[in-house]
Computed example of a mutant assay.
Amino acid sequence: MSESTPVLSTPVRRREEDVRTHQRRNALHTLLGLLELAGQDWATVTDRVRDPLVAAMLVGKSVMASERGVRLSVGESSSLRGCHDRADDLVTILGNLIDNAVDALLGHRPTAPDGPWIEVDLCERGSVTELRVTDNGPGVPPERRRWIFVEGASTKRHADDRRRGLGLALVADLLRERGGTVTVGEREGGGAVFTVLLPATVPGGEGEAP
C-alpha cells in the first residue's frame, strides 16, 4: 500500500481543519453511544466488542445510521478484547469507513427487501486486528479502488462547497503510519467490502502491545 497510496495535496491549514472536523464527528458519535449504552440494552454490541470506547462509537454510529434509514450491525462472529491498545486508531478507522458506507448507501439506495445495511466485523489474529466494513450499496469499480483513497476523491460537496473525500484518505494515512493495510473489494451480491489489517506493533518495533 505504501507504494500505491497517492500523496495528499490539500494545504496544511485547510487539511488540519478538516481532520479536526472528522475527529469531532467521531467524538460526538462516541459520546452519543455512551449515552445510549447508559439507557438501553446494547448487548449485541458489547458482548462482541469488549473495548468500551470502540463499542460506544459503534452504538453511536448505529443510532446515526438508523436515523438516516440505514441498518448498522456487528457481525455475530466478531470478537474484540477490552482495553484494546489501538482503541483510538480503531475509532478513527471504523468511524470513517462507516461514514463513507452511509454516504454511499444514501447516494444509491439498494432495492433489496431488507433495505440499506452495513455490517462491521472485528477479530484478532495474533498481533493483528482485522476489521471489515461491508455494505450492500453500489460498490466500488475496480478502476477506482486506488482513487477513492485520494483526498477529495468524491463527487459530493458540502453545503459550503468544501471538498469531501477526506475520510478514506485519513484511514490510508493512519494505516501507512501504523504499518497496516486497507483494501476494498466487491461483496458477493453487490456492494463493497473494506478490509483493514492493523498490527499491534508499529514499524521499527515500537509500540508493541503487552
Rank of each mutant, 00 (worst) to 15 (best):
S78L: 05
W42T: 02
S9P: 02
G39W: 08
G180N: 11
R109Q: 15
E76Q: 03
L80Q: 00
R48D: 04
E119A: 10
R24C: 05
W42M: 05
L8Q: 13
R68M: 10
R68G: 03
A87D: 02
A172E: 06
L90P: 04
L94G: 06
L8M: 10
L175R: 08
L34R: 10
L175V: 09
I118F: 02
P110A: 05
V74K: 01
E124F: 11
D47A: 12
K61N: 08
E143R: 06
L72G: 00
R157H: 13
R157M: 12
V45R: 00
V128D: 03
R14G: 03
V7L: 11
R132P: 04
N100Y: 01
L198W: 01
V133H: 02
G126A: 11
C83S: 01
E17Y: 13
L168Y: 02
V49Y: 00
V91S: 03
A27M: 15
L37C: 06
D85K: 03
I118T: 04
T46R: 04
T181Y: 06
F149K: 00
D51G: 11
R25W: 12
S62R: 15
R176K: 10
S66A: 15
G180A: 13
L58Y: 06
S78T: 01
V70Q: 08
V102S: 09
G179W: 06
R132H: 11
L53Y: 13
E186S: 15
R15D: 00
T195E: 09
P138M: 03
G152Q: 03
G82L: 08
L197D: 01
G75P: 02
L80G: 00
S77E: 15
C83A: 00
A55H: 05
G205K: 02
D89F: 05
R50M: 07
L166S: 06
M64T: 04
V150S: 15
L131R: 04
R132M: 14
P52S: 10
G126N: 12
E124L: 12
P199N: 07
R109W: 08
R125G: 07
G33P: 09
P141S: 06
V171G: 08
P113A: 12
N136Y: 01
H108S: 14
S78Q: 02
D51T: 12
E124V: 15
T21G: 13
T21E: 14
R109Y: 08
P52R: 10
V150K: 05
H84V: 11
